[in-house]
Each structure stands twice: as C-alpha cells, then as structure tokens.
C-alpha cells in the first residue's frame, strides 16, 4: 500500500499537461508493477473518461480501489486504496500551487523557469503520442516488444478506422467535435458487433 501511495505521489509530481499527460507515466508504472494488464488499463481509461470529474483523479481512484481490493481485500481495502491513491496524486499539485499562490507569485515569470517549461511542453506531447502509438501496436498488432509473435487483430483495426471516420465525418457534417463519451459508446457497440455477432469470421 505504501508502494501504491508513493507511486501515485511520483505520478502526481511529474504529470505535466493534465489527464492525458499523466497517461504515459501512469501506464508505465502500472504495467511495471503488474497492477493491470494493458487491456484493463484501457478499460479503466475509458471509464475514467466517461464518468464526471478530472480524468486523472478518476484513474487514480480506480487503480487505487482495484489495488486496495487486491492487497487488503473487501470493501474497506478498496476504499483505503482509492483514498490513498487519490490523495497521493492530488498532494503534489496542491502543495506546488499553494507555494506559488502564497509565496512566489512571480516564479513562473522568470525566463529560466519559462525556458525549462518550454522544453518540457513538447516532451509531454511526444510522450502522449508515443503512448498512443505503443497502445496501438499492442492492441492492433498484438505485440509489446519486437520478440513477440504478432497476433494481428483486424477487428480492432477496423473499429479504430471506423472511429476515426465517425470523428471526422461528425466534425465535417455537424461542425462540432463529437464528445468522447459518445465515441466510447459507439466503439462499445462496434466491439459487441465485431467480437460477438461477427465472432465466427
């Protein structure tokens, strides 16, 4: 449990760029610790995205609850895990913002600080895109390293492209970005169709 707390403390300290910025570090840590499989992680992200509240908090609570349930067991274990992980992910941000608000209001105006942030910003974006590519390779081609035997999943690839098509056609037709929740619901339906009803293919 201490490990859970410390890991989320670490995640909270380095996750620049909000929820999605957190995903690269989070998925690394979670898979390294063997807390979740990649498939579980993706379902957790989907649930965090489609429930209210900050995505980062939702993910921390979710993983904390599932780990607490696994380590200590029972409802109490889940609750303790959820609280610990959430507290850990919030604490660094809370302290840093307090320090900035109370003591060093101008700290972000210093050119040196700005220079460091200017270097971090593109890195975070590279990490998010890199994470997406890694997950794509693992979901569609079925490998997580070069030595794995490929297990190509044409269903996942088809669903991926259908989702891309829905996304772009909706922004073309309705001139409005489709909400992630609706996209998730559509993909759930496609999943049932492709893996369930078309499972014989």
């Amino acid at each position: 449990m201490l490990d859970l707390f410390l890991t989320f403390l670490k995640i909270g300290t380095v996750s620049f760029g909000g929820g999605y910025g957190m995903i690269s570090v989070l998925s690394e840590e979670v898979i390294k610790h063997g807390w979740l499989s990649e498939q579980q992680l993706l379902s957790f992200i989907a649930v965090s995205e489609s429930t209210p509240g900050p995505v980062a908090i939702n993910m921390a609570t979710f993983i904390g609850a599932s780990q607490g349930g696994a380590i200590i067991g029972g409802v109490f274990g889940s609750l303790l895990g959820a609280i610990l992980a959430t507290l850990a992910v919030v604490l660094p941000a809370f302290i840093i913002i307090l320090v900035i608000a109370a003591l060093i209001r101008g700290v972000l105006k210093y050119a040196g600080v700005q220079a460091v942030l200017a270097g971090i910003r593109p890195v975070v974006i590279g990490l998010i895109i890199g994470t997406a590519i890694n997950l794509f390779i693992s979901v569609v081609i079925g490998v997580s390293k070069v030595t794995d035997t490929p297990n190509f999943d044409w269903r996942a690839l088809t669903i991926f492209f259908l989702i891309v098509a829905v996304y772009f056609s909706s922004s073309l037709i309705f001139k409005k970005k489709i909400s992630p929740i609706l996209l998730i619901l559509i993909s759930a339906f496609l999943g049932i169709v492709f893996y369930g009803f078309l499972g014989f293919l």
């Binding site: 498939q39 995205e49 994470t131 690839l157 492709f194």
Partner: peptide
C-alpha cells in the same frame, strides 16, 4: 471493452 480499447487509443 475490446471495441472501447481501440477508441481509447484514438482518444489519446
């Protein structure tokens, strides 16, 4: 959720 995985990859 198999379907949702592909969607989450796209969202990220």
């Amino acid at each position: 959720f198999y379907g949702i995985s592909a969607c989450v990859v796209f969202l990220i």
